[in-house]
Design a protein around this nucleic acid. Structure first.
Lengths: 243, 243
DNA sequence: CGCGATTTTGAAAGATCTCAACATCTGTGG
DNA sequence: CCACAGATGTTGAGATCTTTCAAAATCGCG
């Protein structure tokens, strides 16, 4: 078994209580969820679910980062989703998923047994309402991502990616600079952006040479000029959403 | 005004009654919907909604084909969604959309006033449940599309596109051939696939030269060898979903 | 029949990928 | 604490694919 079962935290104490699929649930519904849930953890790099695998549970991501990816016959792969805390895995009413789910960092899932969860979706409105919101949010992200994959240059892709990291880190940016940690390897970034890892490396170093970024460490970089970074994304002033 | 208001058909007679957002509604809910709906029609090529425009209604597509697209500052555009009969436009709880919606063919919408519709989503489960399913379906499509945009070659993109048309036309394919009508111009196909129109033209003619396709008419083509077409998509045996 | 829109075709430029070599980091064990 | 091995990242040169720019061909419609 590539997972371990922990003792479940009480829902009312849960860090993602107000953002996850349970966000709109009342006390009764929470109690029902409590009865069908269990925690599982995965180490960074482990596969959480394989494409086509029979699903026995659906889950909320409690902690860590996971990625969804698809692979062509000859091995080319494309990341098609990035799951953060409170994101949802699986879909009620379908038995398997169309992509692999991999732990990017160490991951904790709050898993719900599939049948009782689906019952809850059918019989009460709050879970479906929240699931709808989550799906629509993911759809917005997916559409920005499609624009990036279909039309942006390598440099624009990298700039957009870094800008997304900045936005997500939500650290107070002072004088137009920001520092962020890179949670992925060059190879993972390449699969995220539809590039090769060499191109990722080159464009990152090109942005460094141009004074937009700086970095020594591989896992940590500093945006020296946020507005130059935004210029490089190709987006118009307000910009996209991606995460 | 770029639309006209028709008399609404009764919901119970509606051709998309069992697939649209109202699919799970009971008679009472249908009656409520009936009270907030009106039909609008758009001619092929007209813009239905602009990005950022304030939404006054959400809608189901009753007839025709519409496309969602995003544009970069310098004018590069990428189609990010294709709406067919029973697909939904807009999202409860948000006032504007992040993309343009354009009528690809003549289009009929069944529009619901935004406030009362959102009320219905909040107070009853059936609409949200169906909206969740529709959003998750679109998400599956979007993810296959991302794989295509990020990793497929021009030839694979075209082959995948044609295969999608075949699958959608669901005409009885006999001896391994099929004939489909092309609903878009080369330029629209290019925006769909993240290519230039010249590349679309070249790849289409290359598949013709290789005996996979044949066509004289611009709007109509024949797949001479379905299995060769599938070979050319780059997908593995079972293939993706796109529509 | 003729005009504008759409499509095809060609040639050259440009971007990204591929392949290969080398550099650097990380963590392990001596 | 250092050396080493494997993983990760960088850099270079050439190949390849797609785009760009331009011109010619074809279609559809009045």
């Amino acid at each position: 078994m590539n997972f371990s079962v922990d003792n479940a935290v009480r829902c009312s104490e849960c860090p993602i209580r107000h953002r996850a699929v349970c966000a709109k649930c009342d006390t009764d519904e929470l109690l029902t969820l409590e009865g069908m849930k269990s925690y599982r953890t995965f180490k960074a790099g482990e596969t959480i679910l394989w494409r086509g695998e029979k699903l026995e549970y659906v889950a909320s991501l409690v902690q860590g980062v996971a990625s969804l990816s698809k692979t062509l016959e000859d091995g080319r792969t494309q990341m098609v989703g990035l799951l953060l805390a409170s994101d949802f895995i699986g879909r009620p009413g379908r038995d398997e998923i169309e992509f692999d789910v991999t732990a990017t960092t160490d991951v904790t899932l709050c898993c719900f047994n599939k049948e009782p969860f689906e019952q809850l979706v059918e019989t009460t409105p709050h879970v479906a309402q929240r699931l709808m919101e989550l799906a629509l949010d993911e759809l917005d992200v997916a559409r920005d991502w499609m624009l990036l994959l279909g039309r942006k240059t390598a440099r624009e892709k990298i700039a957009t990616f870094v800008e997304m990291l900045v936005r997500r880190s939500q650290l107070p940016e002072d004088n137009g600079t920001a520092s962020v940690s890179l949670p992925m390897t060059r190879d993972q970034i390449a699969n995220f952006l539809g590039l090769t890892l060499e191109t990722v490396s080159r464009q990152l170093n090109s942005l460094k040479k141009d004074g937009v970024l700086s970095f020594n460490d591989r896992k940590h970089l500093v945006v020296e000029d946020l507005s130059a970074l935004h210029e490089a994304t190709g987006d118009d002033s307000d910009g996209g959403i991606i995460f």
